[in-house]
């Protein structure tokens, strides 16, 4: 299961915490891989409580936003919950401009995101 190249997934209780390998998420090929790995958490590994921790992410493009939106839809369709945390101000601005902050459940840090599953 741990043949991930774009993410590092760990479990905290029942919650799957995902960190990103790439500081800059913008190359088309790596975004495709990232998407496949994220979707696999839901579709193959049946994870239903997921936190995406953005602490290492400095940059992401609109193509990466597309993968996050699709992941959010897949998790919701599977009756799971997805939360995002540790998003730096510039990327938060991207979410605000595109109004994705209304779609995504965004928390300040990982601890707050995990606690929100209780």
């Amino acid at each position: 299961m741990s043949d991930h190249r774009r993410i590092a997934a760990s479990k905290v209780g029942e919650v799957t915490v995902v960190r990103f390998v790439d500081k800059k998420i913008l190359e088309e090929a790596s975004i495709q891989e990232l998407g496949a790995e994220l979707f696999g958490l839901v579709e193959q590994l049946n994870r239903r409580s997921i936190v995406l921790n953005f602490t290492d992410v400095e940059f992401l493009s609109s193509a990466a936003l597309g993968k996050l939106i699709t992941l959010d839809r897949k998790v919701k369709a599977a009756k799971g919950r997805l939360k995002m945390s540790n998003i730096r101000p510039e990327i938060l601005e991207v979410f605000q401009i595109t109004k994705l902050n209304k779609v995504f459940d965004i928390r300040k840090d990982e601890a707050e995101a995990i606690a929100a599953f209780q």
Partner: peptide
């Protein structure tokens, strides 16, 4: 407009809006 309620979850079409912003 990708920020319309019915388009918020469409996974593409945000690049030009980000450029403008």
């Amino acid at each position: 407009d990708c920020t319309l309620e019915e388009r918020l979850e469409v996974p593409s079409g945000r690049g030009v809006m980000l450029m403008r912003s």
